[in-house]
Amino acid sequence: NNDALSPAIRRLLAEHNLDASAIKGTGVGGRLTREDVEKWLAKA
């Protein structure tokens, strides 16, 4: 759900042209964290 994304995470996803639904969030309530996105980028 994009409503649950912080502005910083939205920007990070946009910079790398990523789809938030492709990344499993580990934050509160399954929210994406910066670490989630960075780990996903490291694997890609």
Rank of each mutant, 00 (worst) to 15 (best):
N1F: 03
N1D: 14
N1Y: 01
N1S: 14
N1Q: 13
N1W: 01
N1H: 12
N2H: 13
N2F: 06
N2C: 06
N2A: 12
N2V: 12
N2E: 14
N2P: 12
N2L: 14
D3G: 11
D3L: 07
D3R: 10
D3T: 09
D3Q: 11
D3H: 10
D3K: 10
D3F: 00
A4G: 14
A4Q: 14
A4V: 14
A4S: 14
A4I: 14
A4E: 14
A4L: 14
L5K: 03
L5P: 05
L5M: 10
L5A: 05
L5I: 13
L5Q: 06
L5R: 03
L5N: 05
L5W: 04
S6Y: 05
S6M: 06
S6L: 07
S6P: 13
S6F: 05
S6W: 09
P7M: 07
P7T: 10
P7N: 11
P7Q: 12
P7R: 12
A8N: 10
A8S: 11
A8R: 10
A8T: 11
A8H: 11
I9K: 01
I9V: 12
I9G: 01
I9W: 06
I9N: 03
I9H: 05
I9Q: 03
I9A: 04
I9F: 06
I9P: 00
R10Q: 10
R10L: 07
R10Y: 03
R10V: 14
R10P: 01
R10K: 13
R11E: 11
R11N: 10
R11W: 08
R11G: 07
R11I: 09
L12P: 00
L12E: 04
L12N: 02
L12M: 10
L13G: 01
L13C: 04
L13E: 00
L13H: 00
L13D: 00
A14V: 09
A14H: 09
A14M: 09
E15T: 07
E15M: 11
E15I: 11
E15W: 07
E15F: 08
E15P: 01
E15N: 06
E15V: 08
E15K: 10
H16G: 02
H16S: 03
H16Q: 02
H16M: 07
H16N: 05
H16T: 01
H16K: 02
N17P: 03
N17W: 07
N17D: 09
N17H: 12
N17Q: 09
N17S: 09
N17I: 05
N17A: 08
N17F: 10
N17V: 05
N17T: 05
L18C: 02
L18E: 04
L18N: 03
L18S: 04
L18R: 02
L18Q: 05
L18K: 04
D19Y: 03
D19F: 04
D19G: 05
D19N: 10
D19W: 03
D19M: 08
A20I: 13
A20E: 10
S21R: 11
S21Q: 10
S21F: 07
S21D: 12
S21P: 04
S21T: 11
S21L: 08
S21V: 08
S21A: 12
A22T: 12
A22W: 14
A22Q: 15
A22Y: 09
I23D: 00
I23K: 01
I23S: 01
I23Q: 02
I23M: 08
I23L: 10
K24T: 12
K24A: 11
K24N: 10
K24V: 14
K24R: 11
K24M: 11
G25K: 03
G25V: 03
G25S: 04
T26F: 03
T26E: 03
T26R: 03
T26A: 04
T26H: 04
T26S: 11
T26K: 03
G27E: 02
G27I: 03
G27F: 02
G27Y: 01
G27H: 02
G27Q: 02
V28S: 10
V28T: 11
V28L: 12
V28D: 11
V28E: 14
V28A: 12
V28I: 12
V28M: 10
G29H: 09
G29A: 08
G29N: 14
G29W: 02
G30V: 02
G30R: 03
G30S: 04
G30T: 03
G30F: 00
G30W: 00
G30I: 02
G30K: 03
R31A: 14
R31E: 10
R31L: 11
L32H: 02
L32D: 00
L32Q: 02
L32K: 01
L32F: 04
T33Y: 00
T33K: 04
T33N: 03
T33I: 04
T33D: 01
T33E: 03
R34H: 11
R34Q: 14
R34D: 12
R34L: 15
R34I: 15
R34K: 14
R34F: 15
E35R: 08
E35P: 04
E35M: 08
E35N: 06
E35Q: 11
E35G: 08
E35Y: 08
E35A: 11
E35D: 10
D36E: 03
D36L: 01
D36K: 00
D36I: 01
D36A: 01
D36Q: 02
V37S: 00
V37T: 02
V37H: 00
V37I: 15
V37M: 04
V37L: 10
V37Y: 04
E38H: 06
E38Q: 08
E38D: 11
E38S: 04
E38G: 03
E38T: 06
E38V: 09
E38N: 06
K39A: 13
K39Q: 13
K39G: 13
W40C: 06
W40G: 09
W40N: 10
L41Y: 07
L41R: 00
L41V: 07
L41W: 08
A42M: 09
A42S: 13
A42D: 15
A42N: 12
K43I: 14
K43R: 10
K43Y: 11
K43F: 11
K43G: 13
K43W: 10
K43V: 13
K43P: 05
A44M: 15
A44I: 15
A44E: 14
A44F: 15
